[in-house]
Write a protein that binds this DNA or RNA. Structure first.
Length: 833
DNA sequence: AGCACGCCGACT
DNA sequence: GTCGGCGTGCTC
């Protein structure tokens, strides 16, 4: 630990949310502030000619530059960032090769960034008053009116002035007035989160004999009577709730207020008032022997209070969640806190409900749909120690718990734990780092562990726990692989094989539910002209446009560009345009055609953009409002529909045919997960996988839910090709608006790297590895920027990182203008696009 | 953000 | 020859 007292200078990261700079700066710590400054303390510093907030991220005993300024003030009494946060940021900066302030963005509490408010004040000295009279007649009319307004009000937020004087040159007017010394323009900082008030309606206590009044009201004003009745029965209510309950509008309430029957109060709402916590009413289920065994190992490790990593490998439906909950209960007993990470996609109300109903109000939930305020409230609850358990997606790994005992990462293999925009990080890496700091336990869970994690478990680096059976001895679903080439040969041109069609009919007759999975949204993959072969492509990205029939649009799935479906070929004018490949819209259409009397729901990015629509669809399906749910990845993972007895995979090949060494792994994981959705209730499940490659080992292994078979075959392949986990990868993406510049930069960079690799090998005897590329990236143009990439493959990530640090020093990485060259660094890249 | 520095077009 | 455009870089 660093002892503040010894150091005279502090290294400060200027508030990273301002995105002003990626560098850190050094300031002298004035003696009077020495006692109150720690790592993480928010301080006010002079920066250029402005005063900005920043965070102390380090100390030094010597000034690092000639002219060091003083820290002006300490901002918070209790630091919003602690030492662990700063250390974690430093580690991320070191590990992922970006500056500390960039890393710090992950750790600054949401909603802390304050909002600038500009206030205009009239200067009211005698001298100015004199000047005013002098100049008033030579000023333009707008200035005159602004001044008159200011004389009335004295001090006005700029916003109000803009509303009052909506002329375009207001800014100019204000500037000239300032130059004349008539007004002052100040910047104030206020919390972005306004204090929240709720309007609460209650009966006026001074009114007596209300019952009689009710009778009178009933004649002319039934709505008003209703409102009063509700208030009589239920006591004070939120205005909105009251309006909902009474089925009326504010005018009714207003007349009752005017008549003096009721009063409207503004109440400052403490957020707990809005929280709904289901009391614990769920009976803990009995554990299977396997669960019991796994839990005991975890409990023993927790009692040790030292860092370790467990991998819980449990088949789908084996009751991993129950083990998680019990482990969390144990952590709470030890007086520590737990963080539970789940993929965003499975962070559904049902999932949360399960934790909340068992663990109660000590659970805080963080997911992407929370507003800034809601998110901030959850952070505060955790920060204050009111919540001991956090459930959330990737970014929840940073929640500021003070005494961390356990981090659970459910569906450990999910690629969504990797953030691939700056600041890049992998929640698993961060979790392990945090657990090390706290002497905590990391519990990775999956039915289909990543090859990396499973290998580490086999090597003894992680402790391996297995749940090989489903709970209540439910059988694994029976899976049938259908060869779609044979379907075609037999004259079946439908997107459904005869087998799948038959089974759908059968399961529908028994009133069961069906999931149909397809990894591509839209109606068709692309459109092609049958005369000249022209395919509509996105002009900003080097990909074909996907046909969305319902909207009548062609859309780019990378940048969101869309255009109407052309009637004739834009190239040759032919009217014979044909769509190729299938998407979820097409599946939905076909199902409706085949089973017109059945309800079908579709769930993909296109149907879930609206807030809450995701939950709406799932709830509707769970309640049995539809028999068939068609969807993409979204329906593949973590969902628990007890009534689903049949799962159909329309095409298993899409994930298989991506140009990526992880394609097989992803296919296996996806198919196993999808298949796992079937038969989670009391009746056995059936799965049909349609493919053009029925002998593919990954598909076969998935059909048997046989992870070990998959692992053995895939690990052999990785060994022979020297891909991870046998090596480590890093990837540089060079992009820019001018293709030649991009190519030139990529080649120069690659040459630098090549020379450095040789130098390290010859002079330092360090085996860095090999260079792959430079080459155009698989998506060679995205959002109007050309993309090339270079890969480094070597035995040790630390050495690769060292190489990149050496070479990239002198290149401007990440931060660059609109058209200039831009280099991004990805370590252990997942998807190589 | 704000400000300085610097390199090319239209002007007293 | 100078004034000023805004592209680029820096602020401890």
């Amino acid at each position: 630990m660093l002892e503040t007292k010894k150091f005279t200078f502090a290294e400060v990261a200027i508030d990273p949310s301002l995105r002003l700079t990626d560098k850190t700066f050094h300031y002298r710590i004035p003696t009077r502030l020495k006692a109150s400054i720690q790592l993480g303390t928010r301080v006010l510093v002079p920066f250029g000619r402005q005063r900005l907030e920043g965070y102390v991220v380090g100390y030094s005993s010597h000034p690092e530059v000639d002219r060091v300024k003083n820290i002006l003030e300490v901002v918070d009494e209790t630091p919003v960032l602690n030492e662990e946060a700063v250390r974690l940021a430093r580690w991320m900066s070191d590990y992922y090769l970006y500056p500390i302030p960039v890393a710090l963005q992950c750790l600054i509490p949401p909603g802390l960034r304050r909002q600038e408010k500009i206030v205009v004040t009239l200067k009211l000295s005698d001298e100015v008053g004199h000047k005013l009279k002098e100049t008033l007649n030579i000023l333009d009319p707008v200035s005159g009116r602004v001044l008159a307004f200011l004389t009335e009000t004295g001090r006005v937020p700029l916003e109000r002035l803009i509303k009052k004087f909506p002329s375009q040159n207001l800014q100019e007017t204000l500037n000239s007035l300032r130059e004349l010394g008539l007004i002052e323009i100040e910047k104030l900082y206020t919390d972005r989160l306004k204090k929240k008030f709720r309007r609460v309606v209650e009966l006026n206590k001074e009114v007596v004999g209300l019952e009689q009044d009710l009778e009178e009201l009933a004649v002319r004003s039934p709505k008003q009577k209703k409102v009063l009745q509700i208030l009589l029965e239920q006591g004070p209510l939120l205005l909105n709730d009251l309006l909902d309950l009474a089925g009326t509008s504010y005018s009714t309430v207003k007349s009752l207020i005017d008549k003096g029957f009721i009063v409207l109060n503004k109440v400052r709402v403490e957020e707990d008032f809005l929280r709904i916590n289901k009391a614990s009413s769920v009976k803990p289920v009995e554990l299977t022997d396997d669960q019991e065994r796994a839990l005991r190992s975890i409990q023993n490790a927790l009692a040790q209070r030292s860092f370790s990593v467990f991998l819980l490998h449990g088949v789908t439906g084996s009751g991993k969640t129950e083990v998680y909950i019990r482990a969390v209960e144990q952590v709470l007993k030890l007086g520590k806190q737990a963080v539970v990470l789940v993929p965003e996609i499975s962070l559904t109300p049902q999932m949360v409900e399960r934790f909340v109903s068992r663990l109660g109000s000590c659970v805080a939930v963080l997911h992407s749909r929370l507003s800034l305020r809601e998110r901030s409230n959850e952070w505060q609850r955790i920060h204050r120690g009111e919540a001991q358990v956090v459930i959330g997606a990737r970014s929840a790994v940073f929640t500021p718990v003070s005494d961390l005992g356990l981090i659970i990462i459910d569906e450990e293999h999910e690629s969504s734990y990797r953030q691939d925009v700056m600041p890049r990080y992998h929640a698993r890496d961060v979790a392990i780092q945090r657990a090390r700091y706290h002497g905590a336990l990391v519990l990775l869970g999956s039915a289909t562990p990543s090859l990396e994690s499973y290998t580490k478990a086999r090597l003894g680096r992680y402790a391996l726990l297995c749940l090989p059976n489903r709970v209540e001895n439910r059988p694994l679903p029976s899976v049938e692989i259908v060869d779609m080439r044979q379907e075609l040969a037999a004259g079946n041109h439908s997107i459904f094989s005869r087998c799948l069609q038959g089974k759908m009919r059968q399961h529908l007759e028994q009133d069961r539910q069906i999931l149909l999975f397809l990894n591509r949204r839209g109606f068709a993959h692309f459109m092609v002209c049958r005369e000249c072969g022209f395919v509509n492509r996105c002009s900003r990205c080097a990909v074909s446009l996907t046909y969305h029939r319902v909207e009548g649009q062609l859309r780019c799935h990378y940048c969101g560009y869309q255009e109407p479906v052309p009637v004739t070929c834009p190239k040759c004018g032919s009217r014979y345009l044909r769509s190729f490949g299938i998407g979820t819209q097409r599946v939905e259409d076909e199902v409706k055609r085949l089973f017109p009397d059945r309800q079908v729901l579709r769930m993909d990015v296109d149907t879930t953009t609206r807030k809450g629509s995701h939950e709406e669809i799932l709830t509707a399906f769970r309640q049995g409002k539809a028999s068939i749910l068609v969807g993409t990845q979204m329906i593949a993972k973590g969902l628990d529909f007890p009534e689903v007895s049949l799962v159909g995979v329309i095409t298993a090949d899409i994930a298989l045919n991506t140009p990526d060494f992880r394609a097989h792994e992803r296919t296996f994981q996806l198919l196993t997960q999808v298949a796992g959705r079937a038969g989670r209730g009391s009746f056995p499940g059936e799965v049909v996988i349609q493919t053009y490659d029925p002998a593919n080992p990954s598909i076969v292994a998935a059909s048997r839910q046989d992870y070990l078979a998959f692992y053995k075959q895939e690990i052999a392949l990785r060994r022979s090709t020297n891909y991870p986990p046998f090596s480590r990868l890093a990837r540089l993406v060079i992009s820019g608006g001018e293709e030649e510049q991009v190519i030139e930069a990529a080649q120069r960079l690659a040459l630098d790297m090549e020379l450095q690799i040789i130098k390290k090998r010859e002079e330092e005897k360090v085996p860095v590895g090999e260079l792959l590329g430079p080459a155009p990236a698989p998506i060679s143009k995205m959002k109007n920027r050309f993309r090339w990439h270079i890969m480094v493959k070597g035995p040790k990530l630390a050495i690769i990182r060292e190489l990149l640090r050496d070479v990239l020093d002198g290149w401007k990485v990440e931060r660059a203008g609109k058209n200039s060259i831009h280099i991004s660094v990805e370590l252990d890249p997942m998807e190589i696009l």
